[in-house]
Simulated scan of single mutants.
Amino acid sequence: MGNKSKKELILFTLPALIMVSITIYLPFVISSYYSLTEWNGISKSAKFIGLQNFKTLFFNNSQFLNVLIFTGKYTFLFMLLSNVMALILATFLVQKIKTANILRGVFFVPYIMSMIIVGFIWKFIFSQGFARLFEITGWGFLNLSWLGNAHLAFYAVVFVGVWQQLGFYIVLYIAGLQAIPEDVMEAATVDGAGALSRFFRVKLPLLGPSITICLFMSLTNGLKVFDIILALTQGGPGGATYSATLDIYREAFQYNNYGLGSAKALVFFLIVLIMTQIVLTISRRNEVEV
């Protein structure tokens, strides 16, 4: 590579590096510093207290553990339902049916909507829409307090999250299914493999890259859930649907405890980093190349 090419490379990449540093790396470093301080976000200076925020977090703050447990349960169920349902629907939608393109659009529409708007829509449905349907049909599950019961609120939040994100994963799985060579499937059919055998022994292994992407995306989307919970339950009832991101937001911006909020954010970042690396490593080991 000549000197001119090197200069051009530096010239074109430098603006992107500066922007990434300003928007990601610099705030991360500043937040790491504030996690070692006691600061209300208003005073001019922050009081340095070392690791006291982390001691408080691990030994005197049981609520954060409950928040992490809820986030873990939500993420697991969100990942499971999103990927299983998306794969089933994608397998159906790649078939040669007249309404396939229309159905793809129908499933994808919720994904392009704002999550806050989706949350408010479903809050109205759970509180008033279901009540009206119960009067018409008499079905008992429609008369349940979906957002007022701690146990049911969890499943309501998961349902809305899956409903909103499902179209995105369907598109990814459709792309993976369409990339499988036809001659591979024809060879499996000639060898006498049935429909289920072709799916589990041929299609599923070859979908490894798509599965890896979908697992990674659903994991990160599940862990950072915020908007839907804020619109649906605001963490209620009784803090039963507090996610980690919502807890960090309230600690820093509502309770004006930026030091402890930054400590929570840093701990949560490390948890997300470890979990994503584990999922990516396991998924990539099971990928099969054509």
Rank of each mutant, 00 (worst) to 15 (best):
Y255N: 15
L280A: 08
K264D: 00
L266F: 11
I278G: 06
I278P: 03
N256W: 15
V279Y: 04
Y255M: 12
I278E: 07
S262I: 06
I271R: 00
I271Y: 02
L270Q: 02
V279C: 06
Y258W: 15
Y255K: 12
I271K: 00
L266P: 05
V288S: 09
F269H: 09
L260H: 09
A265I: 06
R284E: 13
G259K: 10
V267M: 10
V279F: 05
L266I: 14
I274M: 07
Q277I: 03
N256F: 15
L273F: 15
R285Q: 11
N286E: 08
N256R: 12
G259H: 10
Q277G: 13
F253I: 07
T276D: 02
A265C: 04
G261A: 10
I278D: 04
G259S: 09
V267E: 03
T281N: 09
Q254C: 03
V279R: 02
L260I: 13
L280I: 08
Y258L: 14
Y255R: 14
G259R: 11
I271E: 01
V267S: 04
R285S: 09
V288K: 13
T281W: 09
L280P: 03
R284W: 02
L273Y: 13
V279T: 08
I278N: 06
V288Y: 07
G261L: 12
V272W: 01
Q277S: 07
F268A: 01
S283Q: 07
A265H: 06
T276C: 08
I271D: 01
R285G: 12
Y255L: 12
Y258Q: 09
L260N: 05
T281K: 11
I274V: 15
L270G: 01
F269P: 08
T276V: 11
K264W: 01
M275G: 04
